[in-house]
Amino acid sequence: MDRAYPPIASTVFFPPQLLAGYAKGLAFAAMMTLGLIFLMSRLIASDLEAPVVDGLPSIQPVHIEDKKVVTQKDEPPVKPQIPPLQPTTTPEEIPPTEVGTAITIRAPVPSSDTTLTVTRDPVPVYKPLPRYPNAAARRGIEGYVVVEFTVTKTGAVRDARVVGGFDSAGNPTRVFNRSALAAAERFKYQPQMADGEPVERYGVRNRITYKMAD
Results as ranks from 00 to 15, higher is better:
Met1Pro: 10
Met1Cys: 11
Arg3Leu: 08
Ala4Arg: 14
Tyr5Arg: 10
Gln17Trp: 06
Gly21Lys: 11
Lys24Ile: 10
Ala27His: 05
Phe28Leu: 05
Ala29Leu: 15
Ala29Asp: 05
Met31Ala: 12
Ile37Ser: 08
Ser41Ile: 09
Ala45Arg: 09
Ala45Thr: 08
Asp47Leu: 06
Leu48Asp: 05
Pro51Asp: 03
Val52Leu: 15
Val53Arg: 15
Leu56Gly: 03
Pro57Cys: 02
Pro61Phe: 10
Pro61Tyr: 08
His63Cys: 08
His63Ala: 12
Lys73Asn: 13
Lys73Ala: 15
Thr88His: 06
Thr88Trp: 07
Thr89Ile: 00
Glu92His: 02
Pro95Leu: 05
Pro95Glu: 09
Thr97Tyr: 04
Thr101Lys: 10
Thr101Leu: 07
Thr104Gly: 01
Ile105Asn: 03
Arg106Gly: 08
Ala107Gly: 12
Pro108Gly: 03
Asp113Trp: 08
Thr114Lys: 13
Thr115Asn: 08
Leu116Pro: 03
Leu116Arg: 09
Val118Ala: 03
Thr119Ile: 05
Thr119Tyr: 06
Asp121Met: 12
Pro122Asp: 03
Pro122Met: 04
Pro124Ala: 05
Pro128Asn: 12
Leu129Met: 06
Pro130Asp: 02
Arg139Ser: 09
Val145Cys: 11
Glu148Gln: 14
Phe149Lys: 00
Gly155Cys: 09
Ala156Asn: 14
Arg161Met: 12
Gly165Ser: 15
Ser168Ala: 08
Ala169Glu: 12
Gly170Met: 07
Thr173Lys: 01
Ala180Cys: 10
Ala184His: 02
Tyr189Leu: 03
Tyr189Val: 04
Gln190Asn: 09
Glu197Arg: 00
Arg201Gln: 07
Arg201Glu: 00
Arg201Cys: 02
